[in-house]
Design a protein around this nucleic acid. Structure first.
Lengths: 197, 197
DNA sequence: CATGTGTTGGACGGAACAGTACAGAATGGG
DNA sequence: CCCATTCTGTACTGTTCCGTCCAACACATG
């Protein structure tokens, strides 16, 4: 204890994010957060305001960490919209395959529990999905896909990415998730270059 | 009060199902169930054993009600696998559009909270997804789709159906959900009759 | 070295939770 | 008509939860 913080705030947010991600909002208690971070209630409430405030930070953090990975994956295919979409879905599958983090997706979990969240958390989750769709749409447009098609495809890929996360929660195997992604990319290919000869 | 039940068990299960569906498992209290059904704790615990037992009944009920609708939709297109898949997704979208029931999907909600569920509830949810995939696979095979393709497509359509439910929780508009379904059906069409013309 | 400032962890309070116990009530079989 | 049986609502128990409070603490400043 001292006049200076005794812990790293970012680390605590990371640990809290993992816990919310794994157990959901309602079923994560502040005691649990305290155990995971090793922090007392004074530090937790003093720094984050409360459970809702901490959750907001966790969602933001999630968006930063994985948003960067999505951008990097898209950037790896600057000219090929189909490969870019495929790389995007690979990020999702890699995250699911990563044993260091839970299955599923913090945003997907939050979306299904949206009704029980505070209003500001609700808008934050909603915005996370919008950002994903916009990220994809912009990537498609930048790779020459027409506006309307880009919007449709972006939304479709967001939907598929969320379904991969959801099914992974239920124990669907990676092999099956990859099959779903392949089928989805088939749809994207077709949409971008319709078989009109 | 009497030697005979004073309430209709199926009605109580229906009402509980809606409540779990809307609020999730962890955030639904037995007091809430009591308020919704108008029943006291004695009736609730005497009939269903407890919260977990009631949730199992709710999941089963959900599977019966909507399983019947899926079967009916598929049966409407006994020869056309693509139209059958499309009709399947229409059932999901119609349910989302139905103002009498919550958005989303009880199974999708449960899947993202699987870690906090009792083991028997977990297997029940897992099975609900398997049943969906098998329902679709059998329908595809019966309409002439080859075994491997049928398995892949069935899983893909289940994934898309779950994503529609999830996104609807987050407030995605029906118009957008329909667009996602259209794109998905495009993938199915392509997969069944590849453009090898 | 003294003092003030901001941090920390644990104790605390009020509320909500799941599940149990029990007394009261109504049916139906004898 | 009476009693055993079953259902029903409420009171209750022990736990868990979120958020507040506070005394102890160590650093920075003068």
């Amino acid at each position: 204890m001292s006049g200076r913080k005794q812990f790293d705030v970012d680390t605590a947010v990371d640990q809290s994010m993992i816990t919310f991600w794994r157990r959901g909002y309602a079923d994560t208690s502040m005691d649990m957060i305290g155990a995971v971070t090793g922090l007392g209630r004074g530090s937790l409430y003093g720094t984050f305001g409360g459970k809702n405030g901490l959750f907001l930070r966790a969602v933001d953090r999630y968006g930063e960490v994985y948003g960067a990975r999505y951008d990097a994956a898209l950037a790896r295919h600057p000219a090929d919209p189909v490969r870019a979409m495929s790389a995007f879905l690979d990020v999702v599958i890699d995250r699911i395959a990563d044993p260091h983090v839970p299955d599923g997706c913090l945003v997907a979990m939050a979306a299904t529990q949206l009704g029980t969240l505070e209003p500001d958390a609700r808008t934050r989750v909603r915005r996370a999905l919008d950002i994903q769709a916009e990220r994809l749409r912009a990537a498609l447009v930048a790779r020459g896909v027409a506006g309307r098609a880009a919007t449709d495809i972006a939304l479709f890929v967001v939907a598929v990415s969320q379904s991969l996360s959801l099914l992974s929660c239920a124990g669907t195997e990676l092999r099956e998730l990859r099959s779903i992604a392949r089928t989805a990319i088939g749809a994207v290919t077709q949409q971008i270059a319709p078989p009109t000869g």
